[in-house]
């Protein structure tokens, strides 16, 4: 039974969506930090290391491994922030600000689309229960 698509909604897919939503919220935090520190002299812009950690997860999903394995891999993903540039090449605040604003808009859109995806999954699940 657990390989029926409807029940897959309940498991790893939703967990993956949850992981991405958390990561986007954390990326928003990182971008806000970059914008707030735009005039700090000793600040290097940060970026969130998240997509780089998804390689094993992507392969597992592609190979169709069981949900339990995917759950374990999801548990291993921990987004963290890193400094993006070397101190040898500091960029001017005006150059940083527009990049950060672009990233902000992009990240907000990502969050919104992921939420929409979760909503769609939920309606599939509801359809499976009610049949209408």
């Amino acid at each position: 039974m657990s390989h029926l698509p409807v029940f897959a909604v309940d498991g790893a897919t939703l967990r993956l969506a949850n992981l991405a939503l958390d990561a986007y919220a954390q990326r928003h935090r990182v971008i806000s930090e970059n914008i707030a520190n735009i005039h700090a002299d000793d600040f290097q812009p940060l970026s969130l290391n998240f997509e780089q950690q998804l390689g094993a997860l992507r392969r597992a999903v592609k190979d169709g491994v069981p949900d339990t394995v995917i759950d374990r891999l999801v548990g291993q993903v921990h987004p963290y922030a890193v400094e993006t540039q070397s101190a040898a090449q500091p960029s001017r605040p005006s150059e940083r600000l527009d990049d950060q604003m672009t990233a902000l808009v992009f990240n907000t859109l990502n969050y919104e689309s992921m939420l929409t995806a979760v909503g769609r999954m939920e309606s599939i699940y509801r359809l499976a229960i009610t049949g209408s």
Binding site: A25, H28, A36, L115
Partner: peptide
């Protein structure tokens, strides 16, 4: 830069409300 911070704050608000 103040304006940029306000925009970041508004984006946070819309993310929170959408959640």
């Amino acid at each position: 830069a103040y304006e940029a911070n306000v925009r970041a704050m508004n984006a946070a608000k819309s993310i929170a409300l959408r959640a």
